[in-house]
């Protein structure tokens, strides 16, 4: 930062106006060259960053999803159904993450509800892995690989029943999941190939993308006949909503 300018400007203050003017000009010039190099560079960098941000926002804005697209996103033909209602009157969809403690807390309620209602409701499970859970994707991939051998429900149960064993560990639990697959009697060569395949990864991502389209921001998120369930995700709350739907 320049200090010299102030001194000469002050000295010029006593002199005739012409000299004062030129001194003031010189001071401004000094300020510009010294001080504003920093300011210019800093503001320039910030301007570039803002421009990049604006570009990113504009490119990713995209149109809002149409209502039809949203309705279709709740249940896809290839979504995993744990049960299918004969009258297809009530469909419960759960977006879940196998490593989410809130999903684990809701799991006994869900199982109680499923046991109670059986084929009177369609129960659909969709993947919504949360990035802050280190093994959420690995678990979803294991479930999807099991699904490809017709064992989705068995793996779904296994993963929740053992969640406290493998959950919230920073190391990959893929080997643990392979052990579960073995216990379920799966073809291990196929299972390992599926877990590592892009098809399985894409299938999980497609579920998560549907969730994002529907405005899912966390797990567990339930939809009952396409309506987002806003009550407490426990047995009483879910039962009330399911009964309301069945009796409507």
């Amino acid at each position: 930062m320049p200090h010299g300018g102030t001194g000469s400007a002050r000295a010029a203050g006593a002199a005739p106006s012409k000299a004062a003017q030129s001194a003031a000009k010189a001071t401004r010039k000094i300020r510009k060259t010294g001080m504003s190099t920093n300011l210019k560079v800093t503001l320039g960098v910030l301007a570039v960053a803002l421009a990049v941000l604006a570009g990113v926002v504009l490119v990713n804005r995209g149109g809002d999803s149409t209502p039809v697209a949203v309705a279709e996103a709740v249940v896809r033909p290839d979504s995993h159904r744990l049960s299918t209602a004969v009258d297809s009157k009530t469909t419960v969809v759960e977006f879940l993450d196998f490593e989410c403690e809130s999903c684990l807390a809701a799991y006994p309620s869900v199982e109680k509800l499923r046991a109670e209602y059986g084929d009177r409701i369609t129960y659909v499970v969709r993947y919504f892995p949360i990035a802050s859970h280190p093994n959420s994707y690995n678990a979803a991939h294991a479930a999807e690989a099991a699904a490809r051998q017709g064992k989705f429900e068995a793996m779904y149960k296994k993963l929740f029943d053992t969640a406290t064993v493998w959950g919230h560990q920073q190391q990959s639990q893929a080997a643990v999941f392979e052990g579960y697959a073995q216990e379920l009697g799966l073809d291990m060569t196929r299972f390992k190939a599926d877990v590592a395949s892009t098809q399985v990864a894409d299938r999980v991502k497609a579920d998560a993308a549907d969730g994002e389209t529907l405005g899912v921001q966390g797990t567990p998120t339930f939809f009952i006949n396409g309506e987002k369930f806003t009550g407490r995700p426990d047995y009483a709350g879910l039962k009330a909503a399911v009964d309301a739907s069945l009796n409507s």
Binding site: M1, P2, H3, G4, G5, S8, A11, A12, A14, A15, A19, S22, A23, K25, A26, T27, K29, I30, K32, T33, G34
Partner: peptide
Amino acid sequence: TATLADTAAKHPAGDPP
């Protein structure tokens, strides 16, 4: 005073930052 100002103008970056 004019000389002072001139000197300053000629060496705008006279002071090290």
